[in-house]
Design a protein around this nucleic acid. Structure first.
Lengths: 108, 108
DNA sequence: TATTATTATCGTAATATTGCAATATTAAAT
DNA sequence: ATTTAATATTGCAATATTACGATAATAATA
């Protein structure tokens, strides 16, 4: 065991869970906030800013790329990571419609 | 290693990450959707509905309780789990303001 | 009080995640 | 072509998560 039984859930549930999971780490929250503050960003800044090893930051960036929230452009020997505007709105809407599907009704 | 360095992040970042993390499992998504569909709910229904062992469902319910999204009332030998209306709105607003803090700006 | 039904907890196995050092890769600059 | 600087990948150790069977706890009912 230890493995999530994705087969018993539908694609939407799995995708939504994956989005939440990626957002579910304080380093990734901090990375997003920092990038958005800077308007431009390079990984090395993050290493100093966040205080995790370069390899760890790189790993977190990959997670964020897995939900397409970050896009990176090569800029010389650096990479400029930015928040993907289109995906940003998409994710917001996916999350909002999830909240609408679980709208609480009066019970207890 | 293997342990998240919560000390280097602030309380808001840690709490937000925890909220996302709890929502980051398809079983918990499915549980919330089912409870909201039923308007009332008992754990045993969930076991049949979701297809995970009773112990596993109980564990997932505890996770959802950890962010206060579910409240349970004892109802005879059963427990009626419901979505906590106040917290539901609170979480929506926490998540929305997070998205506002990472509003993408034009860069790349 | 004993039984039954329902949910919680414990213990454990399997897998995933986090974090880092070491190394590889990549591309600009010398 | 070398060197340098920045990021990615690999390998590994420590911890966390997921899942389940077994068992405990709880409360209604017989």
């Amino acid at each position: 065991m230890g493995i999530t039984k994705t087969q018993i859930f539908d694609t939407e549930q799995n995708e939504l869970a994956h989005i939440f999971k990626v957002l579910g780490h304080p380093a990734r929250i901090a990375i997003l906030q920092y990038i958005s503050q800077q308007n431009a960003c390079i990984c090395n800044d993050l290493v100093e800013e966040i205080g995790l090893a370069q390899a760890t930051i790189s790993q977190h960036l990959r997670e964020l790329k897995s939900i397409d929230l970050l896009k990176g452009e090569i800029e010389g020997k650096r990479i400029c990571y930015c928040i993907n505007l289109i995906r940003y709105h998409e994710l917001q809407s996916i999350i909002n419609s999830f909240f609408n599907t679980i709208k609480p009704t009066t019970c207890c």
